[in-house]
């Protein structure tokens, strides 16, 4: 499964109404650590089919960025059945992402 680009219009459907875990990646085009994280998230999406991985561009989605109090990127937020259950700010390794999503 690839990474879905999410915006304020489909956030509810893609993230909040999704049954099971969704890993939301808040990022921006100019952010180096975000670019480092991206291939790792693609691998996670590929190997952990039960987890949905979505991406939010903070420059385009200011409303969602503010709503979720994101003020440093990369920022990964893990939702489970619509509830935020974990958050990580900053670049992490693939192992650490797997720890975070509980795999």
């Amino acid at each position: 499964m690839s990474i879905t680009e999410v915006n304020k219009d489909n956030f509810e459907k893609e993230v909040l109404k999704n049954e099971g875990k969704v890993l939301v990646d808040f990022n921006a085009d100019w952010c180096g650590p975000c670019k480092m994280l991206k291939p790792l998230l693609e691998e996670i999406a590929e190997t952990h089919k039960q987890i949905k991985v979505v991406s939010i561009n903070i420059d385009k989605e200011g409303e969602l960025t503010d709503k979720y109090n994101v003020s440093s990127i990369p920022c990964l937020v893990l939702f489970d059945s619509g509830e935020e259950i974990k958050r990580n700010v900053g670049l992490i390794s693939k192992d650490e992402i797997e720890d975070m999503i509980g795999e």
Binding site: A28, C31, G32, P33, I58, D59, T65, N69, V70, S71, S72, I73, C75, R87, V89, G90
Partner: peptide
Amino acid sequence: VGRGISYCATCDGAF
């Protein structure tokens, strides 16, 4: 960290 504290102005300044 990520809620007001930052160690990288060029990364987080835009917020």
